[in-house]
Amino acid sequence: MIWQLDLILLVFVIVCAVASITVKDLLSSAIIFGAYSFFMCLLWAEMGSVDVAFTEASVGAGISTVFFIAAVFQTTRRTKD
C-alpha cells in the first residue's frame, strides 16, 4: 500500500460520489457514477483485493452504467427536485 496513491484515489472517489448525486442532468449522473465505480476499482486493486476490483470493473463500471443509461432513456433527462 502506498498511502499517497491511496489518498489521491480516495479524493477522486469522494469528488465523483458528491458530483454524481448533486448534478441535475441524469445522463451525466450515470456517467459520473461509472467514473466513481472505476476509481473504486482502482482503489481496491491498489489495496490488493484483485477479485473485488475485477467484479467492480465488470459489473459497476460496465453493466450498471449501461443499465442506468437505458433507464434514463425511458424517463426524463432532468431531475424535478
Partner: peptide, 9 residues
C-alpha cells in the same frame, strides 16, 4: 481472479 459471475457479465 475472476470466476463465473465476472465471466458471465
Amino acid at each position: 481472479p475472476g470466476g463465473g459471475f465476472q465471466g458471465g457479465v
